[in-house]
Structure formats: structure tokens, C-alpha cells
Design a protein around this nucleic acid. Structure first.
Lengths: 137, 137
DNA sequence: AGTATATTTGCAATAATGTTGCAAATATTA
DNA sequence: TAATATTTGCAACATTATTGCAAATATACT
């Protein structure tokens, strides 16, 4: 709760029920969340539009980031370290479990360096690995 | 045209106008295509539903694969090598250019090996790199 | 080639997802 | 506590995706 308020205040966001609840979900979720997950877990407590806007606000502020997916969903996860408004510096690997279908950030696995062909400039590397997670193995 | 028919026949698909046209688009596109791109390029020649179904069929057969994106779109690209129905073995890097916004498969760049924590089993590694491409640099 | 069978397509209806403007409600500031 | 700024919910709308079914098209067979 302490942590929750700190995060909101640090980012100069007014403290509202919706933001508290949604941020709380992220803080207590082992994996990434999609818009739909949040709607399910908040039931009808908040309007759909509020959820959209809250997620967008959190992304803008660098509180959460989104994870590439191969379907037409958007997955969000907490930014762990040095992200700030307008600048995401996430540099970790995302893992999708084929069994439980959860998506995690593997914060302690280094993103490998990739050598691009001549002429290409690298800005960001996203790695998404699928397989079987710890809990399902 | 030869190639086109070969691909369809090899996968035991009936040869229809829609499949020919859509596969042709992929064969002649330097980058990945989204559903919307295909609709634009085929104008109203085919029903939206047909496009959805054709793409799904191609994915099922291993003719195309989809590329992870951070927005809610689905990008498709031709499978280059040893993909077959039910088994995708794509092992290449995807590059998104921040300037021209095109997405390519870098077929000749090796996917780096990633060491997962104990307990995790790796099945597939997807790498999406953003930056500036050859043509825009 | 012509017919029978199997497959695919387009239409219509429906569902799901995302966006915008604006007034009412809530939070912050002083 | 009042004034101001911000956020929310509603409604309407736009876009994207899915399904059933009859008509159209492709393939297989003689």
C-alpha cells in the first residue's frame, strides 16, 4: 500500500480508486496482464474506458511496459528498474509458458547481443521465449 | 507463378483466386504484412472474412508465421525454411524499422542462445529488434 | 469434357475491442 | 473548506474479429 502510493506520487499521478486497484493487480501478479485480465479481476468496478486510459497513463509514465505477443492482444508488465516517462529501458527477457500460458519477465537473464548486418542500427532488442516454466516443469 | 502453385499444392490446398493473390503479396513483399495491409492491397477483391481465413490457413500449413508485436496488430511473414503443418521452426530475427516502420525477417542473422534459469525449458526464441534499417540509414 | 463431391467464398449477423467528447464526480491545491 | 484541476463514466461510434449457412468454385472421377 505504501509502495503503491509511492509509485503514483513519484509519477505525479492523482491517487484514485482505479489507479490504486490496477497498480495493485500488477504488484501482486507474478506475470504480465492483458487488458482483459484486468477487466476480469476488477469485475465491473471500473468502466472499460477507465482501464484503457489507466493502462495508457501507466505506460506513458514508465510504470508498466508492454510485451510483444504473436496474437492481437497487448500484454503489460511492471517496469522493474530505470524506466521513466517517455523512456523505457527494459532490458530483460520475456517468457511465455506453453502450459500455464502465463507470461513473465525474467529479470535476471541478460539480453544477448545481436550482430546486425552492415547498414542497420540497433535501438532495442526484445526477446520472447516460449517453453515450459518453473512451476509447470 | 510456378512457385506460387507449388507452394499451394505442396500443402494440399485448392488453388483459388484469393489464395493465389495473397500468397503472391507475400512473395513480393520485402517485409511482413498485417491483415490491414492485405486488405488495402487487394482493395475489395475479397471479403474480409476470406482474408482472415486464408491467413489462418497459411499459418496452419506453415506457409507463413506471425511476428510478435507490441501493439494489437498481427504481423505475418513467409516461412523461409523448414516449417510444416503444425510445426514452425523459424529461427530468425525480426527487425522493425522505426523510420519506415516496415518489419523484415533477417534470415541470415543467427538467433543468440539464451541461458534460462533452472527449471525452465526452452522451446522457441523470438527476437524482435527495432532501430533503423539499411534503406533508411 | 462433364458430372459428382468436396472445398471455399461471400453475405449477414454478431461479438469483441478500441476511441472520443462531454458532463458529473473526485482529487488536489491553497 | 472552497476553488481548481484532473479523472471518471456514459453514450455513441469505429474498428477488428468470428460464426453459420447457402451459393460459388475447385478437384476428382468416369
Amino acid at each position: 500500500m505504501e509502495q503503491l502510493l509511492n509509485i503514483l506520487k513519484k509519477n505525479q499521478l492523482s491517487v484514485t480508486e482505479g489507479r490504486k486497484k490496477i497498480l495493485d493487480l500488477f504488484l501482486n501478479s507474478p506475470g504480465a496482464l492483458a487488458h482483459a485480465d484486468i477487466e476480469k479481476q476488477t469485475d465491473t468496478a471500473f468502466d472499460r474506458v477507465t482501464v484503457y486510459r489507466t493502462l495508457q497513463t501507466f505506460v506513458d509514465k514508465g510504470i508498466i511496459h508492454n510485451i510483444p505477443t504473436t496474437d492481437n492482444s497487448i500484454l503489460y508488465a511492471l517496469c522493474k528498474d530505470n524506466c521513466e516517462a517517455g523512456h523505457h529501458h527494459d532490458n530483460h527477457i520475456h517468457f511465455i509458458c506453453d502450459s500455464c500460458e502465463k507470461t513473465f519477465c525474467l529479470d535476471h537473464v541478460e539480453v544477448p547481443e545481436v550482430k546486425l548486418p552492415k547498414g542497420f542500427t540497433l535501438k532495442q532488442t526484445d526477446v520472447v521465449i516460449s517453453g515450459i516454466c518453473e512451476s509447470c516443469n
